[in-house]
Amino acid sequence: MTPFLEFDLRMIIVDRLEKSYGGRTALKGISFRVHRGEVLGLLGPNGAGKTTTMKILTGLIPATGGRASVAGFDVHEQSLEVRRRIGYLPEHPPLYREMTVRGFLRFVAELRGVPRSKRSAKVDRAIEQCGLAEVAGRIVGRLSKGYRQRVGLAQAIVHDPEVLILDEPTVGLDPKQIVDIRSLVKGFGGERTVILSTHILPEVTMTCQRVVIITRGSIVAEDSIANLTGRGEMGERMAITVARDLDGVASTLAGIPGVIGVDRAPGEPPTYHVSVERGFSGKELLSAAVVQSGCGLLEMKTVPETLEDVFLDLITEEHGVAA
């Protein structure tokens, strides 16, 4: 089988992928790349098309338009080759509840084509990596949700796949378990290529190098975490805390060149959120204006825009357009 694209650093290529179910459009032609060894976060609200994208990549459903490839193999034309290279954790971990943890993982290893001689070693490794040693002999159906999720993760990695596709791997877990799973996933980067979907923002910041934000079947942003939080589509934001609230302060500040908007934050002491252009050079002017207005400057600081701000901005924009 010859790959339809030349082998290169791009492990996963998604090219103008479309999917509609009956009349409903789930994906409106999305494109992104994932490089070898990278951990990519697919971030979006529920129903944005994350699961659909993953199901297309794993060959569970066909796209209605566009194409996608994994390791150079087309997900539709060369599905078996793609499936040989992936590990997949669906939204609901696919577990045979009546089997023991070890028995189940042995079955998955066999199903995924791990040769008999290596099966035990690989199963042991997955058990070790996912922290399942103490429950290895127990029946899957009797485990707690956290352990079941880990068994789900173990079945995705037991055959040592090049590519991992994890659909909401931490959903429904307690904070301790979430931390464990995240560090586990983070550790997969480098040797494996990972796509991870989530609707939880900190998860992306903590585990991924790059993020694709998807909402209503379209990509609204694709960048590294650092760029996305630092790029400041809205520029920067300053928080200015004053002693007394005086009329006209807001309009004075708004008049300074480079200031985009001023918001009076609720609560005391009075704080104004001033949005400024990128590369804003009038901080001195700003502080002088506050002092001259006589309302007593207490504090002035630059507030870095969080991923959450970017995310909310992006998806609200999108909703605004759609409405």
Binding site: T58, R83, Y88, H92, Q155
Partner: peptide, 8 residues
């Protein structure tokens, strides 16, 4: 079924 159908 997701496991079986995404297997090679």
């Amino acid at each position: 079924a997701d496991l079986l159908l995404s297997s090679p």
